[in-house]
């Protein structure tokens, strides 16, 4: 089985189990503020790392290319209150134009 298949099926299985476990645990766990705090910070850390790696990363080096321009425009759009589809479309268009220059 290829790595893509393993990633697809195993992540799907684990994520379903995580969802299901939530419905089977004692509710008192939710009252722990530490669990709450860490749980709300994990997506922030991982998503921010993903933004950085996908904007600057090229194998094992850091590059400044068309993607960065697209992401920068997306940040400005978000700042100005753009909705999700608009923001992504702007990022794609700007990046594609620079890539084709």
């Amino acid at each position: 089985m290829s790595a893509l298949w393993i990633a697809t099926l195993v992540t799907s299985a684990i994520c379903f189990i995580l969802k299901y476990i939530g419905y089977s645990l004692p509710e008192s766990l939710l009252n722990k503020p530490q669990v709450q705090r860490i749980n709300s910070l994990i997506p922030i850390a991982l998503l921010s790392a993903l933004v950085a790696v996908q904007s600057f990363g090229a194998e094992n080096s850091i590059v400044f290319d068309h993607r960065l321009a697209g992401v920068a425009v997306a940040a400005v759009a978000l700042r100005l209150g753009a909705n999700f589809p608009t923001m992504m479309l702007l990022a794609a268009v700007v990046s594609a134009v620079i890539y084709r220059l």
């Binding site: 790595a3 393993i6 990633a7 195993v10 992540t11 995580l18 969802k19 939530g22 419905y23 994990i42």
Partner: peptide
């Protein structure tokens, strides 16, 4: 170019919060 293990770990960590939502919704 990451390994399947990295993809699984990252995807699963991001899925953790759904478990806490389940706890809340149960």
């Amino acid at each position: 170019g990451g390994s399947a293990l990295s993809a699984i770990a990252t995807g699963s960590l991001l899925g953790l919060r759904n478990g806490l939502y389940g706890l809340r919704m149960a």
